[in-house]
Design a protein around this nucleic acid. Structure first.
Lengths: 263, 263
DNA sequence: TGACATGACTGGTCATAACCAGTCCTATTG
DNA sequence: CAATAGGACTGGTTATGACCAGTCATGTCA
């Protein structure tokens, strides 16, 4: 008989019937926290689904919902007939899907920060107005920052947000090194991005980018362009990222959602 | 009252109780096919979940399972209180998660192909043996190919596969332009990759790569390194891809799985 | 001693049933 | 005529209960 896993995962740990979050989300968060905190070792075995049902006093459908999310995120994997196991993580940065620079940094025990490059209202060029469904030349907030990991330049980030959605955004002092744009969107403007479309490519760094990222030219950079939409399917912003390839590679964990055909 | 969607999605369309695939997978495939074939227009509205229940004669849990997958793949999106909508797709290549070069090409109506660069058995260098959990110097099959889209060079792909798992793989003539490594793994060796770990970065192309991809040096390339594991969690292969940035950018569709925090 | 059957597990699938909060049209009311 | 209150929908969440195929340790039989 395997030892009661209650010592690893607090019984009722974080499951609160009055919590506004859905139960499956709470289970997801509780399990993820246990794994991230190292209470469950890498390659370790999780309690079985039916044990989790008893631990958290929720139905199996709820447990399975949480488990499915964790599998799809690549955090755990399942072996039918055997159990659930914590996935070993790769060497570099631990990302699942593309996530917040800030949250990634914290998850990797690096301290995030930024230096302001530019913050003003501009008329959107066509390559910005089109994906945001705006009229050409419409006013957008331009926010350009050099993002730092432990004070080391890692990414050049430029955001464009329609002015209409974020009145007064530039009243804030964006030179403050730890201000988070997305926290501002959430808390001040109640804008919650729900889905996004991301394009990855590579190109040679411009002289300015190379200088900021401390790359000797000619240098290759990884580019990530993302359009985000809110829960009503309205475009929220356009983000362009220019990554230092060595200081900030990206890692994806994939799993058996649908077909896992490969290259 | 909205018109019966039965004209768009064949009633019982593809749902077969004797099909070995799970019901939710069949529903997923049927809906995906309807969308891909254009029976359901972009930004169009899908039948409601309860209508799908009647259409396919399955329970709502099954329909929701399929719907959840499609949402997570970014194919559709949901608006509570309103309905399910086909997601508009972006300009470039339509990828969801990283998928088969061959299947991506076909989905984008481009014809895939390859030119053989190298196919032989080598002793694995450390950077290959480590991720594959092999002893340093263990024998691996090296397969290096220049992949083509409509006969235009797009990606340099190099695979390493432990010899022990694929005896006789090199007996085949890999110079044949349309042979698929993963079809071979599936059909001949019954190896089914289930999950993978992918690292994306950028670097300057080597002279050979630049020449093959028809890029004038100095040129930046997008690199994708992937380790795949099978359903028993054994490493299957290591793939290194070198992408022509303009001919083969990558697109990801993300959705509200877990937290959609951003950069 | 070795091969085999058993049974207690595991995750995977599917059904039925209910309630909630949000959307949207419609009919009633002021 | 405008504001409001229903009611009929939507997807989102959760419960209970059941069966399947695979894994694995154990005990039995040859």
């Amino acid at each position: 008989m395997q030892q009661a896993p209650a010592s690893f995962i607090a019984p009722q740990g974080g499951i609160d019937r009055n919590d506004p979050r859905p139960l499956h989300r709470q289970v997801y968060d509780a399990l993820l926290a246990s794994i991230r905190d190292g209470k469950l070792p890498l390659r370790g075995k999780l309690p079985s689904e039916r044990e989790l049902v008893d631990l958290y006093n929720v139905s199996r459908i709820t447990v399975r919902h949480a488990v499915r999310e964790l599998i799809q995120q690549g955090v755990i994997h399942s072996q039918p007939g055997k159990g659930l196991y914590v996935a070993e993580r790769g060497g570099g940065f631990e990302l699942q899907v593309l996530k917040s620079f800030t949250s990634i940094a914290i998850a990797n025990r690096r301290s995030p920060g930024h230096k302001l490059i530019e913050a003003r209202i501009v008329h959107a060029p066509l390559e910005v107005s089109r994906p945001l469904f705006l009229a050409p030349g419409a006013e957008v907030v331009l926010l350009s920052r050099l993002r730092l990991l432990d004070n080391i330049p890692a990414v050049v980030q430029t955001d464009w947000i329609p002015v209409a959605r974020v009145p007064g955004l530039l009243d804030l002092d964006w030179a403050v090194a730890n201000r988070s744009l997305y926290a501002e969107l959430r808390e001040r403007y109640r804008i919650h991005p729900k889905r996004g479309q991301t394009t990855l490519s590579a190109r040679l760094a411009t002289d300015e980018e190379a200088a900021m990222l401390e790359l000797p030219p000619p240098a290759a950079v990884l580019t990530v362009d993302q359009i985000a939409f809110d829960d009503r399917n309205r475009p929220v912003n356009l983000t362009a990222l220019v990554h230092h390839p060595a200081r900030y590679p990206l890692t994806l964990l994939q799993s058996e959602s649908g077909d896992f055909t490969q290259y």
